[in-house]
Design a protein around this nucleic acid. Structure first.
Lengths: 159, 159
DNA sequence: GTTTCATATGTGTATATGCACCTAATTGCC
DNA sequence: GGCAATTAGGTGCATATACACATATGAAAC
């Protein structure tokens, strides 16, 4: 009648925890950003390109801890909306460089107050402590160029 | 040359943080569970049904903080693999009750050591503190019946 | 009992996510 | 220069996620 005791521990599954939290939080942000035609994923993508400058698909994937092929699809969506452009790297025909457009920057900046609001509300809900843990878990400021892979001042690959 | 200071704050986006963490952790668990033909989502689903007993789609969705329609698709996958069955609620023709099958329980239990391993490794990586924060963020033991919606001892809706 | 409202679910569409496999281009080595 | 190994990316497939809309059923009001 009582559940399998050998499985009770799975109620503490960290994968479940983070996925559950991710779903709930993403819904919140998606809902808020909806008014500006953006979703959390696209907001993040545009923000990364705006702040970090044009980057290759692979660099973006690494920066966001996402699979390279996921970025291919996400960028296709952004391109369809006219938020980014994709062009070949002049120094490496294999590589494609993503760049945010004026339209993309406008959409991003228009959504900024809404984002700030959602961020503020969530921070109050979960508390500064938990927020800090979450950022630490994600590995620090995600969208900033990491020391090992600097590229802030280059638009193209160095030779 | 330097990035827009009005957007720098978005590097602290909690939605990005939780999604980034979710992607990374899910990849870990998916990879590990792959040997047993399960993914994190399906593992969680089966675990919830095994521990909490048969439940309606809506109840499962609420328990996992997922959209109802998401559970419809997830359950369809589980059903296709023969891990769960879906039948009409005897007392409410609108409702469908999901139940784990013997095959589903076997798959779940076979994957348990692998899950335990991944859980252990991740806990060591992120530390007990962060792990606790994450669980708190997700809202406690997710798969246990909540007080407001008890259903541990019923297979069907009470009248 | 009928009308009306609320509830439980299914479907269409769009996006997000990642693995397996493929192609093209670059790099190293000789 | 030429070939092998590496690297960047695309595509097919499966799954995950959720909103808008539609349907069916139960419940409540009268």
């Amino acid at each position: 009648m009582s559940p399998d005791p050998g499985l009770f521990e799975t109620t503490r599954c960290l994968c479940l925890a983070v996925r559950r939290a991710s779903r709930a939080i993403t819904r919140e942000f998606d809902q808020a950003l909806r008014l500006h035609g953006l979703r959390a994923t696209q907001f993040t993508l545009l923000s990364a390109l705006h702040l970090g400058g044009s980057r290759s698909i692979g660099d973006l994937a690494e920066m966001l801890s996402a699979d390279r092929t996921t970025l291919t699809r996400n960028l296709a969506v952004a391109e369809k909306h006219g938020w980014v452009t994709l062009r070949a790297d002049r120094n490496d025909a294999r590589s494609r460089i993503a760049a945010i457009t004026t339209r993309g920057s406008r959409a991003l900046e228009a959504a900024l107050p809404t984002w700030r609001n959602a961020q503020q509300r969530l921070t109050e809900t979960i508390g500064e402590q938990t927020a800090a843990s979450l950022r630490k878990l994600a590995g620090g400021p995600c969208m900033m160029p990491l020391p090992e892979k600097p590229s802030a001042n280059r638009k193209e690959k160095m030779r």
